[in-house]
Amino acid sequence: MSAIFPKWTNRLPVMIITGTLLTGTAVVAGMWYYLTPKYSRVGYQPVQPVAFSHATHAGQLGLDCRYCHNAVERSWYSNIPASSTCMNCHNQVLKDDPRLELVRQSAQSGRPIPWVQIHRVPDFVYFNHSVHVGRGISCVECHGPVNRMEEVYHFQPLSMTFCLDCHRNPAAKVRPPDKVTDLDWKWSDDPEENARLQKANGEKMVRDWKVESLQNCSACHR
C-alpha cells in the first residue's frame, strides 16, 4: 500500500499531546496565579471621589471605626457613613475647604457620594460583620492596617481559602472584644511573647465563648 499520509504526520500525535499538555499547564498555571483573588484583588486601590484619608482620621485623630461604620455591630453590612456623619465635625473643621465640597453638597442635598466599593465578596457568599466584630475578630485581620492607609486598598484576598484559614484556627485571631477596633493592638510587643499569649488566650476565649467557627457550607452559602 502506498503511504496515504506524509511522513511528518507520524510526529503529529506526540506534538499535539505535548502541546496540549504544555498549553494546558500554562493556562491553568496562569489562571491559578493571575485570576485568583490573591492576585486580582490584593492591592486594589481605586481613587475615591473624595480623598478621604483613614490615616488622618482613624490613625492620627484616633476616631474609632464604629463612629462612622456604625451599623457594623448590628448588621451583616458595615455601612459607609452618610455625609451627614462627616458634617458632624466638618461643619466646623475645614468648613470651607474645597476638598470637602462634594461632602457638603451631599449632606445638604441628600444625594449620595458615589464611593467606589473596594471590599466585596461574591453574591453567593453571605458574610456577616456583626458576629465577627462582636466576637473578637478585629477589623485589621481582614481589612489590614486601615488606620495607616492614606487611601484604602484591598489588603487581604478575602477568598474562601482566606476565610477558612481563620475558621480552621480561630484561636490564632480572636482578641478581647474591646480591642477589636484598636488596629495596632498586640498582646505584647515581643513577637514570641505575642504568639504565645495569642495561642493561650485565644484558645481560652474560643472555649469560653463557644466560638463555633463554622466550616460547613450553610455558614456562608445560603
Binding site: S75, P81, G110, P114, W115
Partner: peptide, 21 residues
C-alpha cells in the same frame, strides 16, 4: 480592570436605620 462598583450611602443618615437589618 475590575469594573467599578459603587457604594452609595445616604446623604442624610436616617435615624435608627441599618442596611441589612
Amino acid at each position: 480592570r475590575r469594573p467599578v462598583e459603587r457604594a452609595e450611602p445616604f446623604g442624610k443618615m436616617p435615624e435608627d436605620y441599618a442596611h441589612g437589618v
